[in-house]
Design a protein around this nucleic acid. Structure first.
Lengths: 110, 110
DNA sequence: TAAGTGGATGCGTATATGCGAATATCCTGT
DNA sequence: ACAGGATATTCGCATATACGCATCCACTTA
């Protein structure tokens, strides 16, 4: 029976569980970007980008700043970028170890 | 158009996107535990725990060690715990700021 | 071999998520 | 008020995920 905190924690983590959102965060590392810039840089349709940004916003992962005609998005907390980076390091380590990404294989029974 | 690496990265992150799995990882911080111990500690039915452990296994987040009758699960890479901890810190910061978790509210239009 | 324990799997269902396509909204210049 | 660029929202569909329940498999001991 998971408690409330764990649920919020999981929800926050779940936010990073999308390839497009991961790329959005990567793109925002070097600084703020507008929706249009993100859409162009990632080659993802604008409405789709907007949807992902909405998710990131709801979880407080990104912040918005309006400047003239555009809305600039940025990462709200550097720790998010750090966590992201750690996870990527784990991934890289796995790939190097040739970790049998038994993605579709059976379990530990051996 | 997200690339392969981002997809793997996202899949790995997605693994942390479940309250039960978050609690499993928290429980494993202090050391290895068997399925039964986890089931009892978290008060979650055994088959359900097993399923979540299967997910964690497939993504290489946990490792298994067989000892006599039991199977001990442990976190495969300390960086995973670290990333998890960073995310929790972000969450705590958000809660403190009373971040209007506009979970169900409108966006940045102002 | 029968029984018991620890753990994994399959199934059905309810719910959540991602994406495309169309559309709506906001803001600024004319 | 109007046009147009920038961004947000809605709808529908296809897919993924979580959970309970029942069941199955592996190993040990009597």
């Amino acid at each position: 029976m998971p408690d409330r905190i764990s649920e919020l924690h999981a929800e926050l983590c779940k936010t990073l569980g999308s390839a497009t959102r991961i790329e959005i965060l990567n793109a925002l590392r070097r600084g703020e970007k507008t929706v249009g810039e993100l859409s162009a840089a990632l080659r993802v349709r604008q409405p789709n980008i907007s949807q992902h940004l909405a998710v990131l916003r709801q979880r407080g992962v990104v912040t918005t700043r309006k400047d003239g005609v555009n809305i600039y998005y940025g990462v709200s907390n550097p720790k998010i970028t750090q966590a992201c980076e750690l996870m990527k390091q784990v991934l890289v380590a796995q790939l190097k170890e040739g970790v049998e990404l038994t993605r579709l294989t059976s379990p530990a029974r051996r």
